[in-house]
Computed example of a mutant assay.
Amino acid sequence: MGEMTKTSVKYCRKCKYSYNHSQTEIMCGYYSKTGLRRGCPIGMCDKFEKKGRKRKVKLK
């Protein structure tokens, strides 16, 4: 959690709370993942947390 930041789709894609609603639409899933309301207006966000990188599985 941090300070209020003006958001865009590119910014939201990097957030761990985002999910793909459809092939072209990205939605904020903060409520569904935490059970808490965001409390910030659309287009502004203070809940951004960067996604962790997925590990690649090595095939033997």
Rank of each mutant, 00 (worst) to 15 (best):
G2N: 14
M1T: 10
Y17K: 03
S32Y: 10
R53M: 09
R38S: 14
E3M: 09
S22R: 13
K16A: 02
K16G: 01
L59W: 06
K51L: 05
G43R: 06
V57M: 08
M27L: 10
P41L: 09
S32Q: 14
K54Q: 13
K56S: 12
C12S: 06
K60E: 13
G39K: 09
K14N: 12
S32N: 12
V9N: 12
K14H: 03
E49S: 08
V57E: 14
V9L: 13
G2T: 12
R53I: 07
S22W: 06
K14E: 15
K51W: 01
C15T: 02
K60H: 04
K14A: 14
C40T: 15
M44N: 07
R55P: 01
C12G: 08
P41H: 09
T24N: 15
T34C: 10
Y30K: 03
T34P: 06
K51F: 02
G43K: 06
K56W: 02
K51H: 01
K14F: 00
M27D: 04
C40K: 04
S32E: 14
M1L: 10
K58Q: 11
G39F: 06
Q23D: 14
K51V: 02
K60V: 04
R37K: 13
E3A: 13
G2Q: 10
E3D: 15
E49R: 11
R53F: 05
K14Q: 14
R55H: 01
G29W: 07
C45N: 03
Y11M: 12
R55A: 05
G39S: 07
